[in-house]
Design a protein around this nucleic acid. Structure first.
Lengths: 194, 194
DNA sequence: TTACCATGAGAACGTTCGTTCTCTATAGTA
DNA sequence: TACTATAGAGAACGAACGTTCTCATGGTAA
């Protein structure tokens, strides 16, 4: 027998794979049981409902996302470079064979009429990303108004890459972000901020 | 009795309201019947399956979207103004009380693991929008690389407004688009293009 | 060994859904 | 008036799902 921590991990990772590949509603709890190798009874003893499991999966995704973002940022040494590294991270992600969009956006579209917990978890993730970008923009010495612009580029790149089906959106968004950064940091941009 | 054209219209409009408000999978065909006031038999005689109805609803949405975009563009007299009018159109849309995201993105997230027809219809819509932006960018005399950047801003504004829940993303994306346009049309931007 | 408890496998339950079928009422026609 | 064709109302059907329950099994304590 495996302990609760290991069982939890197996269940969440299995559900993550299945939910992302096929959508939450299209995956039955029995499929999660088969993929995780953990009995239904055990699953329901650890997660009271499919909704709770979905939230746990989203939290797992958030941890993965944050780790990937941090790894990309660690290679960069200026705030400006860390901001652009976001798009390099996206570029690598878009090239993965099973990429088909941001799990948070997909789940939001699928369950927005349903669970409040899921909706709140998605919002928290996007807000946290916006805050991350805002901190880097501040470090770069750019006006705060630049932050949501760069966050919007990142969001747009994800949906564009998912729907149109190529990695190009990452480079396109990166170029736009670079232009916006240059404009915000250019000497005569200071006039508007001053 | 109403004729087929009228019945089709009632069914598609009813399904559009319900699908957008609650999601496709969460709405049963019986709810569509009740909202449209058309019998199930009639619905199935006009649309062979729920998938076909979903595609018809997306086509209806596309027509609405194109009309709104055209109305906004008609007020503007330069290509640059028509490009920025996209974001004014988004701004007005985001302020509608029942706005909760782009129907195409939502449906894509919901059914991406399912129907090929739905996936293709969503892709066609986003591609058509990208083409629309590209034509305006060409008219404005800006480099072609600007077009996907502006399209990505529009997509990102839609998901950001849906998830974070305010209309601010439209103005933020508009400001970014204006900066990108200025940078693309500035004299010294010609060096890169030349 | 025997009694007991926890566990996994999966059957079972109640609900919902997409789709089809039945029945009835009506309208048109001779 | 009698017959026919059509369409609506909604029952019916088969499948799938989330969740719970049953039962057999295997390990453990006395």
């Amino acid at each position: 027998m495996i302990d609760d921590t290991e069982a939890r991990k197996r269940i969440v990772e299995a559900a993550d794979r299945l939910f992302y590949a096929r959508g939450v509603q299209a995956v039955g709890m029995d499929a999660v049981r088969a993929e995780a190798g953990v009995s239904l009874k055990r699953i329901y003893s650890l997660f009271p409902s499919k909704d709770d499991l979905t939230v746990a999966v989203l939290r797992h995704r958030r941890a993965q996302w944050n780790a990937g973002l941090a790894a990309g940022a660690a290679q960069a040494h200026t705030a400006r470079a860390k901001l652009l590294a976001i798009f390099d991270f996206l570029d690598a992600w878009f090239r993965e064979p099973d990429f088909h969009g941001c799990a948070f956006i997909n789940v939001f579209g699928e369950l927005s009429g349903g669970s409040d917990d899921v909706r709140r978890t998605v919002r928290e993730q996007k807000q946290a990303f916006a805050d991350y970008v805002a901190a880097l923009v501040r470090d770069a010495g750019a006006p705060a108004a630049l932050a949501p612009q760069i966050a919007i580029l990142a969001e747009g790149a994800q949906t564009t890459a998912a729907i149109l089906g190529g990695p190009e959106a990452a480079a396109q968004a990166r170029a736009a972000a670079a232009t916006l950064l240059d404009a915000a940091l250019a000497p005569d941009a200071g006039r508007a901020a001053a």
